[in-house]
Design a protein around this nucleic acid. Sequence first.
RNA 1: GGGCGUUUAGCUCAGUUGGUUCAGAGCACUUGGUUUACACCCAAGGGGUCGGGGGUUCGAAUCCCUCAACGCCCA
Length: 876
Amino acid sequence: MALEATYNSQTVEKRWYSYWMEHNYFHSEVDEREPYTIVIPPPNVTGVLHMGHMLNNTLQDVLIRRARLKGFNACWVPGTDHASIATEAKVVAKLKSEGINKEDLTREEFLKHAWDWTYKHGGIILDQLKHLGASCDWERTKFTMDDDMSASVIKVFIDLYEKGNIYRGYRMVNWDPEAKTTLSDEEVIHIEKQGNLYYLNYKIEGSNDTLTIATTRPETILGDTAICINPNDERFTHLKGKKAIVPICNRVIPIIEDEYVDVEFGTGCLKVTPAHDENDKVLGDKHGLEVIDILNEDATLNSFGMHYQGKDRFVVRKEITKELEAIGALQKIETHTNKIGTSERTGAVIEPRLSDQWFLKMKELAQPALDAVLEKEVNLVPEKFINTYRHWMENVRDWNISRQLWWGHQIPAYFYGDGKEDFVVAESLEAAVPKAQKKSGNSALTASNLKQDPDALDTWFSSWLWPMSVFNGIMEPDNKEINYYYPTNDLVTAPEILFFWVARMIIAGYEYRGEKPFNNVYLTGIVRDKQRRKMSKSLGNSPDPIELMKQYGADGVRVGMLLSSPAGNDLMFDEDLCKQGSGFVNKIWNAYRLIDGWEISESLEETDTSKIALDWYRAKFQMALAEIEDHYSKYRISDALMATYKLVWDDFCSWLLEMVKPGYQQPISGKTFRSIIEIFEDNLKVLHPFVPFISEELWQHIAKRTPKEALVVSQWPELKPINETLIKEFEFASEVISGIRTIRKQKNISFKETISLHIINNDNATTTFDAVIQKLGNIDVLTYVSEKIEGALTFRVKSNEYFVPIEGAINVEEEIEKLSEELKYTEGFLKSVQGKLKNEKFVSGAPEKVVAMEKQKEADALAKIETLKTSLAGLQ
RNA sequence: GGGCGUUUAGCUCAGUUGGUUCAGAGCACUUGGUUUACACCCAAGGGGUCGGGGGUUCGAAUCCCUCAACGCCCA
């Protein structure tokens, strides 16, 4: 059946994806082969596919498909993440739009809504990945809140608690007043903002004097519990031991001394608000100050805010400034830029807030994970991220793992009293009872006396176990799957989550299996638009991936994504890249259409041209294959693609097919045809990871294949020794062909018009490719001569001279000019080479090989100059 | 403020240990070409003081110093 004239990506994609699924090629079971494993960075369960996922998953699919072809037992585990904050925020918003407040629901009721939401919107993203061609083992699809996954999280929490690594602490945390939860340090984004510095006067108790402090947050004065001065600051000696009066609330507070105060900043007097600033908290602890929290959990003021109670902190800031001014306590306002923390998820300005939270001690746990990367047990690609990783790991801080949310894994701590330590940690309420009885010494305690901590765990506290828990490696540490698939091979993810996720997975891996979770971490860039803006929903600058695939085909988009995405560098995405990708797919399609249309004749002998052309391409293919393998080994995926692209487009289509192509309506020899097909099949194999759909389509078109013979499970071509001589000889021949084409163009000789070519073979060049030169140059007669041909057009390759006699006079002047230019260039070149060779330091200092090469260059140049000079002499 | 990185053609990027005619690729651009697979094509061509300055070396895009611009991470 003849191929359609144009490639229809949609039909083909549907056909082969279902064929692959039907034959279960993506499923992996433990067997005797060597495994090659990737776990997907689980996307948000209710998320939709964006360009970052496209890039990331294309890369993973390329790696896994190649591994499959190389004979590994390839296993790519897909799944999703419950994304605590993001999902809960969405559910809360949805309920609100229906007039329901989260506060009015019980935990169980709320969770039911959240699960409904998850069932409704969940997993869309995984289906979208199928459009891309992702060859995941869908039978293994996991969700971080599946029962077994949750059990793993709880088990690890209990274990770490029992080892003393998890503790409960009253600490200053990052509070997101919008999501009403704490955030880890990593989830806070610091941005520079223009603000003000307010200079406020405080009266000194028992005198008419005042002191002036500078603050960026005047609303927090209501929480002030001290003024601090530097004991070495002579300006304030008179204040020592006195007390100050906070304006508006008229609280009398001590003036304390501490060298912490920067005498240069502001006025040198610092107001201390321990409840609302991390540094002030430290000062407060040191000096035993009172802690006055003036904020509610939504960042409105509480009763300490007096007449501002119930108003938002930013509103209060404006209003209190006016009041301070009215009572004469405001001295001046200066503009001031400072960095403020904002929530990664909601964008809200973070409030430092004191509260009871759960923390994981990191220092000791982090050590093996730091060593693993420094010793290249785990390779970060590109290596430049090692420094960033080291810096973070060496200064790692304890991880706040609790979140004031319901959607997630509820912390398995059960309180039996109001005391800070009146709790036990257990995997269930039932298990908690005996523990609580023991700890409290109260054997009468029952389940009804216990109250589980309402907080949930940070989502990353479940995803850090991902490479282990997807194989049930936490609950059953010795099961055959975890023993076989772990450690996984490659992890493909974004540098943004190097600390959030990657580092913590390595930590967990060493803690729970004594082994790294993966060998290599390939860090991709961020997908940006042409103006270098990060693609985001809010900016609306991201194309819809599904639409993109409809327009350019999944293969086209895959190629487009990979064309310009070196590891770790941002990708400036441009739809033109997909256009180039679909152009490539079109080229492959048409190359096969040409071959497919040939009439085959078994009685025809293989021509010399075809024979040498095929030999050359086989050599060239090996050379490209070696290069491609090298690129893959270094995770230079876009380079591997480009090498494949050039092999297929330039070498196969533009050179080989043109060389073997029979004349119009002429048949091709059966032998040649079979060789071409064999070669084309190898091309399809190396193409497959990049363009799985069209490669499978053509593969299946070439011959009727059994399910076992599908391309997706075929064998990657073997590396064989490269015939470099043949490649070099062809390069020479291709220069001759270029010379002919240039002459044709310059003299307006149509390609259809045959010409003759006379050669003086000064260089002793091989005649192997003469038949090819004749065919591609449309040469009727190719002869070797010893004397130059008068009145012919000429060109030179190395020191060989080529003559094309044509009708009509040659423009002698032009010829002379052309030759003189070549001569001038060559002489200049010779001079520089001889300059080097005359330099004794060069000859003695440079390696022999380099000197020999320079000598060869000298000889070549001398020979060329000789021929140029004779030619010139002949013309003059 | 501390750390890391980047700067090469109009654009996006390669350039390994300092040494082939090393200044490259893809795209874009210019010119010519279409009854014969593909105009999503073929062929030919132009285009760069390798961010600036200084140094080491027989030899520097590559190593060192310095300045500048940009980006990222951390505080």
